[in-house]
Amino acid sequence: MAGDMEEYLRPGVRTPFCPGCADRILVRLILRAIAELKIDIDRMLFVSGIGCAAWIPSPHFNADTLHTLHGRAIAFATGAKLFNPELITMVVSGDGDLAAIGGNHLIHAARRNTDLTVICVNNMVYGMTGGQVSPATPMGIFTSTTVEGNRERPFDLCKLVAAAGAEYVARYSVSQPDTLVSSIKRGLETPGFSFIEVISPCHIQFGRRNRLDTAAETLRFFAGKCLMKDEAEGLSPEELRDKIITGEFSNGRNQAD
């Protein structure tokens, strides 16, 4: 890890992530965004829920961390931020945590436009509990609870959160590291509710059930599905099927009209 970012890591902590986990990449990318903005990490509060992604800040980040109940990270963060607005407050949690059990808090915080930066680490599955279907699992995907393939439509989380009123909404993949870092910086700099969905594949629980045998294969599979927003323009719904559209979906102008 680059010299100036080492101090952002809690000394003596061993990472719990599986070898090849995309969340390891995200640990680095979030810290890179903070380092590039030259934010004093002691001014930051990291709040997370339950699941693999919740371990990204806690215990890795050498800062104040609040590891909360399943689904409630945004509600906990709301209390801390409202009482002490000086805390630069970032929520890092997974798709199951933020969009299923915590979905109500997500849309209401977006509606209030509370000044939080929420990183939704989307591995499209419940990784920690053994790979069950999540509200972000694409259709047809095999999970431990969709043995004939997922028949439910997933949320388009960015559309949901933008419609609820969030100030800044974006989606990028860990396979687009530089754009993702810029986006996290935009999120941190935007006053109001910022939501960044990060495609962070899980090769253990998602990959191996769907004929993606290695971490690299799983990453490549998702990288191949990602299209930038302008590339997607003009494509037919048929051509867009199974694609993941990345880019910014609301960038501060959402509230103007």
């Binding site: 509060l45 709040v47 609040l66 909360t68 109940l69 409630r72 509600a75 906990f76 963060a77 709301t78 209390g79 801390a80 931020k81 409202l82 009482f83 002490n84 805390l87 109500n104 808090h105 209401h108």
Partner: peptide, 13 residues
């Protein structure tokens, strides 16, 4: 649920 969660967050702040 959110009420109590935010109360706990505020207490730590």
């Amino acid at each position: 649920i959110a009420s109590l969660s935010s109360v706990i967050g505020a207490s730590w702040a």
